[in-house]
Every structure is written in structure tokens, then in C-alpha cells.
Amino acid sequence: MSIEVRNVTKRFGDFVALEDVTVSLPTGQLTALLGPSGGGKSTLLRIIAGLDTADEGTIDIEGTEATNLPARKRNVGFVFQHYAVFKHMTVAKNVAFGLEIRKRPKDEIEHRVDELLRLVHLQQFAHRLPSQLSGGQRQRMALARALAVEPKVLLLDEPFGALDAKVRRELREWLRRLHDEVHVTTVFVTHDQEEALEVSDEIVVINEGRVEQIGSPDDLYDHPANDFVMGFLGEVTTVNGQKVRPHDVDISTTPILAGAAQGTISRVLRVGFQVRVNVLTDGGEDVTVELTKSHANALGLGEGTTVWVTPTPGSIPRMVEKAG
């Protein structure tokens, strides 16, 4: 295990940011800390990096007790949401910073910087100032800068949060491939469940200062430990008192489905290749159903159509709605 967080608690005044958090983050993996904003995940990352200190609890990094080490001695790479580029230095100088601090020989620095800029596809921008780069380019530079010092772990705080949707998606895929190449233990914070599900080997869901669940993306999606995790990882709708994903609802225009609830379609919305249908059941539930456009067309669904809905047999996750 690469990073061991034990019983960490952090308060800001009356606000409890982290409450008795214990997590093990495996070596060589790409782990996502996922949760809503203000849930404590960034605080946890900053405590691991040594940029904040825990009120209680301990941190081990690669077998070294790091709880009281200052940030500069932990040998971690940190990438900030707003890049934190050194505005007055060129791209190459930014990347070289950590190596210069460590007083490495000049030709080694030069060689390493060149190698890293190649890795992040910025070699032609080496002598530009950061202000001449786009947001995505700056973040790649920040990543190269963090990797330059060969950190034991790489920590990324909402690394793509300030970028627009398209660049985000590109960088996300790229980060996954980069990780497969360099294999450094990586932890990144995100509030975007799609990002976490797509990129990471393991996800730690954090909410209101507590760990809700730890597991692989599939694990979490299919076997959420509780309502919160289920709701946070994807959309949820309720049919016959059971919580399921909207694409796990079967719909038909004839009562052939056993135990199906009868209802009337209140709204049909086309979203690209998908169709979202809202069904108001006689039992008073508002069920959301997602199906493909062709399926919807084949069934001839429209507002006012009487339909029968039921959870797809064998679909997971499936949870019984709590009383009250």
C-alpha cells in the first residue's frame, strides 16, 4: 500500500471537513477521490500533500511516516485546479524548478525537461511564457512540472475543473494513457462521476467528511453501499418501491410484463440518440425511463400513451426504498 491515511480528522472552526477518515491507496494505481463540492476530498488530498495538516490521525507515504513532514520533504507531485503556474518563468523553467531546487546538474535538468515536455506534447512551447498557453496546455505543463521531481505519488486537485467540456474529456483520456505509461501512484480529486468512472482503477467516495465507499468503478456502479453512492454515481428512479437506474426500466404498451405498474406518459424528451420518458403511474410514482430512439419509435410512445413499467429482470443495482 502506497498511501495509508489513518483516523484523520480536520476541522475548520466549527466545520468538520474530515471525520475519522481511514483509507489505503494502492501503489501504482490511479485512484479517484469522488464526492460533492465541500465534502472534504480536496482537504484530504492537501493533507496527504502536506499543504494542510490534520488535527488528528496519521499519514504514511510509501512506508514513511509523513504526518509531520513539511510539504517540501514529502516528495509528492501536486497539480492544482487553477494550474498555479509560475507566471514569470518560461514553460521549460517551470518544469525545471523542482530539479533546480534539488541542485541537479545542468545537463541532467536540460535532458529531463526535454523528455517531460515531449511526454506532455509541449516541446515546441518550451520558451513561451505560461500566459501564452491555453488552459489545457498550462495544466499539462503543471503536470510535467510535478512529474519532473520523480515523485512517489502524484496528487491532482480537480485537475480539469477549470477547463471546458471538450478539453476536459481529451485530457481525461490522455491522463489515463499517461498513467499506463509512467505508473506513478496517482490520486485525483473530482466531483464528476463520469470522470471518476472512466479514468480510475479505484474510487473513494467521500461525502460530508466521511468515506462512503471504496471500490472499483464497476463495483461502485453495480453495488453501491448506500443511497448516496447510488445517487451520486448515476441517475436513479423509483418503480414499485424499488430504486433502479432509468435505463434499467422495461416499458411496454401492453400489460405483458409481470407485476408491472400501469401509468400514463406525461412527457417525452429527445436527447440525442436517447429518449427520456416520464411515466406517472397509477400508484403515484413519477418514473423516468431511458431508452433508445428506435425502441421508442417502435413502441410508438407519445404523451398520454398508457404504458406498463417494471424494473428489468436481473438489473443491478436495485434497492428497496426506505420507508418514510
Partner: peptide
């Protein structure tokens, strides 16, 4: 931000201040 980044890259207080 920049000062924190410098610290995470191993710079001490004096180096962070001057650089």
C-alpha cells in the same frame, strides 16, 4: 497557489520567497 506549488516541489521558505 504558486507558493504552494513551489513548496510541493521541494522549495523551502527562503527559496519560495526569492524565486
Amino acid at each position: 497557489d504558486q507558493e504552494q506549488a513551489a513548496r510541493s516541489l521541494g522549495a523551502n521558505a527562503w527559496q519560495t520567497f526569492w524565486r
